[in-house]
Each structure stands twice: as structure tokens, then as C-alpha cells.
Amino acid sequence: MSGRVVTAAEMGLIGCRRCGHVMQRPQAVEGNSCARCGAGLRWRKPQSLERCWAFLIAAMILYVPANTMTMMKTINPFNSTDDTIMSGVIYLWAAGTPELAVIVFVASVMVPIGKFIALLTLLVSVHRGSSRDRVGRTRLYRIIEKIGHWSMLDVFVVALLVALVRFDLFGRVEAGGGAICFGGVVLLTMMASLSFDPRLIWDTPEKT
């Protein structure tokens, strides 16, 4: 590659988001269908920033009850304990399984919060028309796309414990509203990152 690369937008081309087929003018028009797969052609993801903001804000609001409400109830004939995400992590640490505590902490706390911060950074930088470190920001986008779904871990753990621990004598485990909220947070952050169009990072002109 020598010098500046040419963009599809400059050449009047649109690459199909579903099958990768490249369409040329005059067919390459917003709203036309891909000649190969029939998907609607989009120059950029529609309402990318608005949709990303909406999903992100909803996720951040839902993150509060996801952490304060009960994730999991442990009930036995003598007592019952309510666990939130953090108290579950602390329990794992105290029970002598710090590796597990770290895994759950990373998946349930660091990944969602990291994703909030990353998406906020991307959104604000695009709104400001920043031309700084586009490669780094695109890489950041790729990272959050890859790791986002791992946050679902704790929800699956609760579902499995509910299914396994149901004994009359030794007690049982029930899922709480926190599990619903947390599952919602993961889905919403995934929808936020899917809505974001990384090409917007590259659309702003170079500042001289």
C-alpha cells in the first residue's frame, strides 16, 4: 500500500454489510438492495450514534439495579442468604477460590464497566470530530465487540445453580431480579456496540 488509501465513499462504492459484495455506482445508492444477497445497502449503519447512545444509556441505568438487587437466593432450612454480584465475588474469594472470584469479577464488573467507558469514549470522540488515534479507537471497538458477550457468565452460573441445587433437606437456590437486570445490561451493551459504526471514526477530515 503506498501513501493514502482510497475509501469506498470517495469511489462511490458500497461494500455489502452482509455478504461483502462491492457495489458500484449507479447501483451503489443508500436503500438499494445488494445484487448478490439482497440486503439493503447502507453507506453507514443507520442512526448509528443515536441508537448506540440509547442502548448505552439504557444499559447504564439498568446496571444500577443489576448490582443492588439480589442475583441469587440461597435457601436452606436454617437460613437464607441473598447474594448480589459483588457479594457473590467476595464469597468466592473467601471460600478459597480466588481464581474464580477474579474470573467472575472480570466478566461481571470489569467487562461491562470497561464497555461503558469505551463506548462513551468512542461516541464523544466521534461527536467532537476528533482525528486523534483513529487506529487505536478502531482497535478499542474491535476489543469490546469480542469480549462483550462474556459478561453473560454470571447469569448462566445462576441458572445452572438454580437447576442443580434443589433439595428438600439441603436447601435450594433461586434466581433474583438482579439476574434479569444483569442479563438485560449485557444484551443492551451488545446492541449498543453492534449499532456503532466504526467507519464514523474515519469519516472526519484530518486536522492540519
Binding site: 488509501v5 482510497v6 475509501t7 469506498a8 465513499a9 469511489m11 462504492l13 458500497i14 461494500g15 454489510r17 461483502g20 462491492v22 483513529r134 478502531t138 471497538y141 474491535r142 466504526p198 467507519r199 471514526i201 474515519w202 469519516d203
Partner: peptide, 8 residues
């Protein structure tokens, strides 16, 4: 076409 930066 690069789906992340639109290069051809």
C-alpha cells in the same frame, strides 16, 4: 471494502 474504516 474494509467494514471498519471504508478503505478499498
Amino acid at each position: 471494502v474494509c467494514e471498519q474504516c471504508d478503505s478499498v
